[in-house]
Nucleic acid binder design. Structure first.
Lengths: 250, 250
DNA sequence: CTTGACACAGAACGCATGTTCTGTTATATT
DNA sequence: AATATAACAGAACATGCGTTCTGTGTCAAG
């Protein structure tokens, strides 16, 4: 026996919560906590607020950062009331601009040389032409977005990392790696840059290629490797210059 | 004995912190924590960040809510042209509203089955949660953007195409391939889907893997292969935030 | 040199806050 | 009416995060 179905669309409480999110952010400059939302909407249980927030997230109205206090972002405004038209436009515009992120393309990466890393005070806005635009929804939420930069892969030397000539890799500037991270590593004894998954195993470090058919390598002395950044994303655009398309074509 | 006096005005670190506050809020929609500020300014101690924040508060640059996580509001901007900046952002926003494109994520692709292709009258707006957002600037300019759809790669069967488990491939709906296109092809005699570069060579067709170390295959009778779409882009996210995880994930 | 204020690091403490679990009530569907 | 599910409440738990304390080096004024 089928039973009660959930009504599609937003209920009164969904709308109320969206309203609260908008007002609170406007008034205080930071988003509310679950408990604060509860007070402002006469919902007495944190779990119930959470319940509604999950639904709003599934519907795409908000984005939440896991386990992060006040980590709620409003994606779509639900206010249907007339309001001040100008203000409304402004708000929408600011929302939209947050959904796109410009990552500076600072150089190339290939096996023969260490990874170029921009300084932390790198001015991101000085060169408009060399930027990769990525929607915020594709980027990891918890990362410090200011530490991101992009590199173009040169040559076929990183096929074991499933990365091709011409691919764009988006890196995060960091010197330390956690287990499971894919990192750019400079191997001092080989004079070589590689992209590998990083695993610390006791005193040794295991570097595992992304390609599951290829073997890991072990580094006995971690001082011989330098973590130069963490790979956050790889983008491959087909149909560009003909340069790398057909080495074998007759 | 009076000793060392504190220099008046803002030091480098004060300015750096104000900069971080502004950028972080702009990028994430909520203010940073003390620890996050520390990471972004290379200050290793929470107490030291707190130390500087108190000074900034006394100077009137920020307001803090006592004991409230992320309760920092920026009152004065450190950038010398605050109004200009906001206006600039607004203008850019309005220009860029159209520069983001939502591509529906319609299913999975793996070796064992033909590629799912949405109907041409597919309603892109009915399911908000299953969409990949891509900046226009990353997409090929001449393509008919309405014909694009996205698939999630399942399994390791396409490593010869340099495509990994979990990757997102953005496809263009088409039945014909031009030389040099990377296409999704259904091989009837093998009951298999592959992603290969397509080259017509006389009566035969050569399918070349993206991985230059692997061999091409030749199809003598082109009627045995069906072009199911053209690969426009491949996106690999290394560390997906939980809130944006693929809705197709189990 | 001595001194005292400043600039910093690290750890510990405790409240704030997100998450989860168990349970209850209400409502739509059969 | 029976039942499955949605809509709720309350509490417990784990972690995030602000706060505070102790200690160390550094630099300028006496």
């Amino acid at each position: 026996m089928m039973a009660r179905k959930r009504k599609p669309g937003l209920g009164d409480r969904h709308r109320k919560i969206l309203q609260v999110l908008e007002n609170f952010q406007q008034a205080n400059g930071y988003p509310p906590t679950i408990r604060e939302i509860g007070e402002l909407t006469n919902i007495q249980s944190t779990s119930l607020v959470n319940y509604y927030l999950n639904q709003l997230q599934e519907e795409g109205y908000i984005a939440r950062e896991d386990r992060l206090s006040r980590g709620i972002r409003l994606l779509k405004s639900a206010s249907n009331r007339p309001m001040q038209q100008a203000k409304q436009n402004l708000q929408n515009a600011q929302q939209r601009v947050e959904e796109i992120f410009r990552i500076p393309l600072v150089g190339r990466i290939f096996a023969g040389e260490p990874v170029p890393v921009p300084a932390s005070d790198f001015n991101y806005f000085d060169d408009e032409s060399t930027a990769i635009e990525v929607a915020r929804s594709l980027l990891p939420g918890r990362e410090a977005l200011d530490d991101l930069y992009a590199l173009e892969v040169q040559g076929d030397s990183m096929i074991d990392a499933m990365v091709n000539d011409g691919d764009i890799v988006i890196m995060k500037r960091t010197n330390e790696a956690r287990n499971g991270d894919m990192v750019a590593i400079w191997l001092e004894d080989r004079d070589e840059t590689t992209l590998k998954y990083f695993y610390r195993e006791g005193k040794r470090v295991r570097l595992q290629p992304a390609n599951p058919t290829m073997q890991s390598i072990w580094i006995d002395d971690p001082r011989h490797l330098r973590v130069q950044g963490k790979v956050v994303m790889v983008i491959r655009q087909m149909e560009r210059s003909l340069s790398h398309q057909s080495p074998l074509a007759a």
